[in-house]
């Protein structure tokens, strides 16, 4: 089954969607939507580094995303607002990345492939990396779920329960970096944040508890990935953007449901 590029693409999309769903919920709850964007933009620098040092793109992106995420976590609350810091880091990283790419001699990289992803070119190794990363993130978030949730509701309540909210923030940041790194091939830098935020946002009106929201976000994410791939194949449209379009339509539908319900 893995011989078919379509089957590989479907599995890749599914893996990313399932890992992004619970993480996306935290991104929405903690108002970190821009954090996903920033980490993703920084990963262009990771692509450039990977190509210069002959590493795999996954490793390069992961390293840069991790550095970026921990830097922002550490610097926040020291005189700069989070959005200012993210703005500085994200745009500097993408600028340095683009400049670095131009220095690469003899390598003509298809920047478009990294900006928008190329899910149809996913190979067996990519698939292993994507699912490895996805399972790691799901396990990490599942293991720390209660602590992450308490720290999200209130850092002070977390402290009183013996939970260190800064450590939980770090866990979340690392998970985010991993998802961005594995998703870059599937949806690309520009649309990773969409796959984090849109399914979670669409799940909100349909949920009563945090767990429900994560589960529904996972279903919506999976449907977006598979449905988007199907539509992309049928109408010969770019796969990554089509997946995000399907997610956006589901967000619109769930918004209508919540409006009708009052």
């Amino acid at each position: 089954m893995l011989d078919s590029f379509l089957a590989r693409a479907a599995l890749a999309g599914l893996g990313v969607a399932l890992a992004a769903a619970p993480l996306g919920c935290f991104v929405v709850w903690r108002r970190m939507a821009y954090f996903g964007d920033a980490t993703a933009h920084a990963s262009i620098l990771g692509v450039a580094l990977a190509l210069s040092f002959n590493m795999s793109v996954f490793t390069g992106v992961l390293v840069v995303a991790l550095i970026m995420a921990t830097t922002v976590s550490t610097l926040s609350g020291r005189g700069y607002a989070m959005d200012t810091l993210l703005g500085v880091m994200a745009h500097s990283a993408i600028a340095f990345g683009l400049v670095a790419v131009s220095f690469l001699e003899g390598v003509r990289i298809d920047l478009m492939a990294y900006l928008f992803g190329d899910i149809l070119a996913v190979g067996r190794t990519d698939l292993a990396v994507i699912w490895g990363g996805a399972l790691l993130v799901i396990a990490l978030v599942g293991w720390r779920w209660q602590k992450l949730l308490t720290a999200t509701v209130s850092p002070d309540l977390a402290y009183a329960n013996g939970i260190d909210p800064k450590r939980e923030q770090l866990v979340l940041t690392i998970a985010l970096a991993v998802v961005v790194a594995v998703a870059i091939k599937v949806v690309g830098v520009l649309l990773i944040a969409a796959l984090l935020v849109i399914p979670a946002a669409a799940a909100r009106p349909l949920s009563q508890t945090p767990e429900r929201m994560a589960a529904i976000a996972a279903v919506i994410g999976a449907l977006s990935a598979l449905g988007g791939l199907h539509l992309a194949y049928t109408f010969d449209t770019p796969a990554g953007p089509t997946m995000v379009c399907v997610a956006a339509v589901m967000f619109a539908l769930s918004s209508v449901v919540s409006l009708v319900r009052g």
Binding site: V28, T150, V153, A201, Q208, R212
Partner: peptide, 23 residues
């Protein structure tokens, strides 16, 4: 610990029952 005030973001669905089970 009962804090001075606690703001639960409206994007976070949380029933009273679920809140009691945390952490």
């Amino acid at each position: 610990y009962v804090p001075q005030k606690l703001h639960i973001d409206p994007t976070l669905p949380m029933t009273v029952r679920r809140f009691l089970s945390m952490p």
